[in-house]
Design a protein around this nucleic acid. Structure first.
Length: 603
RNA sequence: GGGGCCGUAGUUAAGCUGGUUAUAACGCCGGCCUGUCACGCCGGAGGCCGCGAGUUCGAGUCUCGUCGGCCCCGCCA
């Protein structure tokens, strides 16, 4: 099959040197002898005349084989096919007047081929290397090197490179020192599941891949480096999502002798500068700020999309004494008013009811405000006073629809919070090409783990409580607030950080509050406690999720689109087939025997 | 661990309440063509309908299981 494609022999590059890229030539190069190298994008074989669009990472240039320039080359060029790799020497010439291709940057010229070399052949690719053809994602991932040849994918990687470059540039200028921290480190409790690496030299012992360089960067502050940053891979063995991969990249920073303001202003200047330089988008600084509790109250979520205005309202008091039992008894009742929402069909409302059920909602109450009446399955249960109260609190007008959730705060806020996003889309309330950054602050320090029946650090156990809140840990741990902050853009959490605990005393108190006894905390975090004991400066930092940030800037909806070689939802790499089995010899060296091998019958 | 969507030529899809030989476009192969640009024209090849059971006279179509991909809940900052 391959033989039929071409009898043309491939040749070594020899002394040929590329003179230009495929997006570079224009009328000002007229008559110039050039040498281009690239792939065959399209071939238009007219028999006595052949056009080839030669592609490299930058663009396309039309090269033309004609008998009057080189008849031999024309003869050979009949054998060229898609994705063959060529080196072409020729002369730049102006195209005939009405033959200009305005959709090509190089569309005013063409290169008349004097000589060419076939550098490599190609099998017919499994999918067309074109932006307008969307092949199935598993196919694209299996042949990712072909997928990346598509300009849209390459463009994302180039954007990512620009972003990292600007970040490094900014931080370097601002006096940050880039330091690499270990990838083979020790497993620490809390947080996500670790990826483990067995030790050959110490059987039965394991390294863990870092979930983040958190402890190392704090130790670098103890070391007096003052300002640290790193663009670093982090690893978390948890289930994947469109915005979550098992290995992902953080822009990790830490600063000494600063408090919230110092870190946040540096971080938002960096981000604003980035958007300006890379996208030419101006973000107003300082960014808006919102308390966690206010974010939950207004938006239901701790990463609100503030590009549009719909907000939730607490109407618990209005319906407290209602004949409608569900409302009267619920711990929390909130309403979401959608102006113009009365146009929603019954089918759409049913779909929204299904939608909120995934967040634990048992149903979705609604009222359509018509000119003369309230159209609703629940209106009849509401007294005139309650109706008046709702009209007042919500500012109801004819044409509106109001959705209600009455349940636990968690269910109410999640259900209405995500419903708000859905409705924002449905009613076209979300402006495109807009970036709305916002800081979320004053997070609770701890979070109740219902399964484990204990308090856990919401951020991580090194986060400092607000002044005076350390004392709350014993009596009212749920009320203690953290000196933590998240940066949210368009409803995406792109970064988060905190002021750290920098005294041994406080850090031990914190561990104790998390149910760790002295022995245990010294065992696991002895090195940190010691470092804090030797004059640790006050410090804090922030880490950005680079993949999410680039995804946002690229306008993609999955971080896979901005990662060169991403993994599937089962954390597999379809190209290399990782993860894969290993030989018994490798296992033996590591002192490992698989449990399944003992149970499974030998075949 | 759970819910939803999907799997048919190389690719993207169509295939109705089960019924003759499984369609189309693009791609691929061969031929013709000196101004195309996603060239055009003529001809051709190409299928384990993801895999395995079951129901049925008969399964791409229905049922169950399984594998894989995507989205989500849980999990994860």
């Amino acid at each position: 099959m391959e033989e039929t494609r071409s009898k043309l022999q491939t040749q070594p590059l020899g002394w040929w040197v590329r003179s230009h890229g495929c997006n570079e030539l224009s009328l000002e190069h007229d008559d110039l002898e050039v040498c281009l190298m690239g792939w065959v994008q399209y071939r238009r074989d007219h028999g006595g005349l052949i056009f080839i669009d030669l592609r490299d990472r930058d663009g396309l240039t039309q090269v033309v084989f004609t008998p009057d320039v080189n008849a031999q080359a024309l003869e050979e060029a009949h054998a060229l096919r898609s994705e063959y790799v060529l080196a072409v020497k020729g002369v730049v010439r102006k195209r005939p007047e009405d033959m200009v291709n305005p959709s090509l940057l190089t569309g005013e010229i063409e290169v008349a081929v004097r000589d060419f070399k076939l550098l490599n052949r190609s099998r017919t690719p499994p999918f067309l290397i074109e932006d307008r053809v969307e092949a199935a994602e598993n196919l694209r991932l299996k042949h990712r090197y072909l997928d990346i040849r598509r300009p849209a994918v390459a463009k994302n990687l180039r954007l990512r490179s620009q972003v990292v470059h600007e970040i490094r540039n900014y931080l370097h200028t601002a006096g940050f020192i880039e330091v690499e921290t270990p990838v083979l480190t020790r497993s620490t409790p809390e947080g996500a599941r670790d990826f483990l690496v067995p030790s050959r030299l110490s059987h039965g012992h394991f390294y863990a891949l870092p979930q983040s360089p958190q402890l190392f960067k704090q130790l670098l502050m103890c070391a007096g480096l003052d300002r640290y940053y790193q663009v670093v891979k982090c690893f978390r063995d948890e289930d994947l999502r469109a915005d979550r991969q098992p290995e992902f990249t953080q822009v990790d920073m830490e600063m000494s002798f600063v408090e919230e303001e110092g870190i946040m202003s540096e971080a938002e200047n960096m981000i604003a500068g980035l958007f300006k330089k890379v996208l030419d988008v101006k973000l107003e600084t300082p960014f808006l700020r919102l308390n966690y509790s206010q974010a939950i109250a207004d938006y239901g979520l701790d990463r609100p999309d503030v590009r549009f205005d719909l907000t939730l309202r607490d109407v618990t008091d209005v319906v407290r004494g209602s004949r409608f039992n569900l409302f009267a008894r619920a711990e929390l009742v909130k309403a979401l008013r959608v102006p113009g929402g009365a146009e929603l069909s019954r089918k759409e409302i049913d779909d929204y009811t299904d939608f909120v059920s995934i967040y634990g909602a048992k149903g979705l109450a609604w009222i359509k405000i018509k000119d003369d009446e309230w159209q609703s399955p629940i209106a009849k249960f509401l007294s005139p006073e309650e109706q008046e109260g709702l009209t007042d609190v919500l500012g109801l007008e004819a044409g509106d629809i109001v959705f209600f959730q009455a349940a636990s705060p968690e269910v109410v806020n999640n259900a209405l919070g995500y419903l708000r996003l859905k409705l924002g889309e449905r009613f076209g309330l979300i402006p495109e090409n807009t970036f709305a950054p916002i800081w979320i602050m004053d997070f609770p320090l701890l979070e109740w783990d219902a399964d484990e029946k204990r308090w856990e650090a919401r951020h991580h156990p090194f986060t400092s409580p607000r002044d005076g809140h350390m004392e709350l840990l014993e009596k009212e741990p749920g009320l203690a607030l953290a000196r933590a902050y998240d940066m949210v853009i368009n409803g995406q959490e792109v970064g988060g950080g905190s002021i750290r605990i920098h005294t041994r005393d406080d850090q031990e108190k914190m561990f104790a509050a998390l149910g760790m006894d002295l022995q245990e905390s010294r065992n696991k975090f002895g090195f940190l406690l010691q470092a804090l004991d030797y004059g640790a400066p006050p410090h804090g930092g922030i880490a950005f999720g680079l993949d999410r940030l680039v995804m946002l800037m690229a306008g993609c909806s999955s971080i896979r689109d901005v990662i060169a070689f991403p993994k599937t939802q089962k954390a597999a790499c379809l190209m290399t087939d990782a993860p894969a089995g290993v030989s018994n010899r490798q296992l033996r060296e590591l002192g490992i025997r698989l449990r399944e091998a003992e149970n499974k019958p030998q075949d």
